[in-house]
Structures are given as structure tokens and as C-alpha cells.
């Protein structure tokens, strides 16, 4: 069953076209990766799904519901959580406060506390730094915090924008493991990555986006073996 469907989406920033008849889909409980160079339109795709920008044409649906007209906060309420590029955690709030605000829309206080505890269990370094200000954390810890913050919100669809950016290989591995754990618990994941190797390792399927539309699609194994992908993104 397709959970997330983008059909023939056009997106313009003023007169510059960012997305050109883009069509992708994500099945329930899949991990789908979006690969491509800078400026290809990957971040625009995520921003459009989470409601930060509106498509000029085409449709974006989640489990049948049209997202294009919803406000960002309603899209979050529907269970779609977007972890933006660059972490963007709240620097002068403590780690714990950051987690709490991830649960802004969660009505049950106990549930928030429970999910926060799960996040601490999953990422023990966060628990150590519980009362520290977010801005004092390292890059990798901030990425964990951003993930934890999303987890407290109980996402049905997780949109990740370049989670591995600027992180050491070991930390990238940890982050990817957490993403797999999240999928095992029933969440669907759409992962935008420049680090194609790490992304294709955990993804089920992937798309290559160029110039705002899909240039290639297939299973992760297919793409990992494709000579063009290897040459352009896997550094062969």
C-alpha cells in the first residue's frame, strides 16, 4: 500500500523551477532514499511534503489525504515529521527541553515521558547530557538529539534531510542504525542523502533526482550496482 505519493509535482521559487513533474512514492514501512547532487531538488521535496512550501502543480498525498493545502502544523499532527538539514536544534534550551518540544502535539504527558525515556535508552549520550544546553553538543550528538526530538513526536513518516552531513563515519553508522530501528518499530522513512553509500545500505528503494525530477529509480541494490550511480555518487 502506498503511504506517501507525490504525483507530477512542480515547484517554483519565484521564477526558478526547483521541481519538474516529480513523481515518487513510498510504501508503508519502507525506507526510501532520495539521492542527487546539491540543488537537485531533494530538500525542496521534503520541504514541500512537510508543508513549508506549496507545490505549484501536482499532488502530495499521505495515506490518501491531500497534504498540499494543509498548514505545516496540521501535517505534523498527521504524523509526518521532518528533521531538517543542519539539525536545527534549539541551542539555548536543554537537551531535555528539546525532547519535550518534540512532543508539543502529543496530548498524553505520560506518553511524552515514555518516549523521551525510550530516546534516552536508544541514545545514551543524550541521557548523559540531559541538562546541558543543546548548543554545547557535538555535531553527532545534535543529530541524535534531532532524531530523539522527532521520536518523541511519534512519527508515522519520518523525513530526514542529510542526517549524515558533517558527521564522522562512525557516527554516521550509529545514525543509520537508529533509522533502521525506527523503521523496525513501524515508521516509514524517506531519507535524503548525499552520502549515497550509507543511504543505499539501509534503504529498500531509492530515486536519483536531477534537475528537479526523477532521473533513475529502483531498488537499493539495483542502483548500487548501476554504473552511472557508481560513477556519480559512489566515487568509483
Amino acid at each position: 500500500m502506498s503511504a506517501l505519493v507525490l504525483a507530477d509535482v512542480d515547484l517554483y521559487y519565484h521564477r526558478v523551477q526547483a521541481l519538474d513533474r516529480l513523481s515518487i512514492d513510498v510504501q508503508e514501512n519502507e525506507i526510501v532514499a532520495l539521492l542527487g547532487n546539491n540543488g537537485a531538488g531533494k530538500t525542496s521535496t521534503l520541504s514541500m511534503i512537510s508543508g513549508l512550501v506549496r507545490p505549484n502543480a501536482g499532488s502530495v498525498t499521505w495515506r490518501g489525504q491531500d497534504l498540499a493545502k494543509l498548514q505545516p502544523w496540521d501535517i505534523v499532527a498527521a504524523g509526518l515529521l521532518h528533521i531538517p538539514e543542519g539539525r536545527r536544534i534549539f541551542s539555548t534550551m536543554t537537551v531535555h527541553e528539546n525532547l519535550l518540544i518534540g512532543g508539543y502535539l502529543v496530548k498524553d504527558q505520560k506518553l511524552i515521558r515514555q518516549r523521551a525515556d525510550e530516546a534516552y535508552a536508544l541514545m545514551p549520550r543524550l541521557a548523559e547530557r540531559r541538562s546541558q544546553q543543546g548548543g554545547t553538543l557535538s555535531g553527532g550528538e545534535q543529530q541524535m538529539l534531532a532524531l530523539g526530538r522527532a521520536l518523541v513526536g511519534g512519527p508515522k513518516l519520518l523525513l530526514l534531510d542529510e542526517p549524515s552531513m558533517g558527521l564522522a563515519p562512525l557516527v554516521v553508522k550509529q545514525v543509520m542504525q537508529i533509522i533502521e530501528h525506527v523503521r523496525r518499530n513501524g515508521t516509514t522513512v524517506l531519507l535524503v542523502e548525499q552520502n549515497a553509500r550509507a543511504a543505499l545500505r539501509i534503504a529498500d528503494r531509492a530515486y536519483v533526482i536531477e534537475g528537479g525530477s526523477v532521473a533513475m529509480s529502483g531498488t537499493a541494490d539495483e542502483l548500487a550496482a548501476d554504473p552511472r550511480v557508481i560513477e556519480a555518487y559512489l566515487g568509483a
Binding site: 513549508l52 505545516p72 502544523w73 536545527r88 534549539f90 534550551m93 508539543y104 502535539l105 513526536g153
Partner: peptide, 13 residues
């Protein structure tokens, strides 16, 4: 601190 990130927390800014 960060209006965009707050939008993504589901806050009706």
C-alpha cells in the same frame, strides 16, 4: 530561537 524548526514541531506559529 528558530522559527522554521519550530514549525516542524507542529507548533501553530
Amino acid at each position: 530561537l528558530d522559527p522554521r524548526a519550530t514549525l516542524l514541531m507542529g507548533v501553530n506559529v
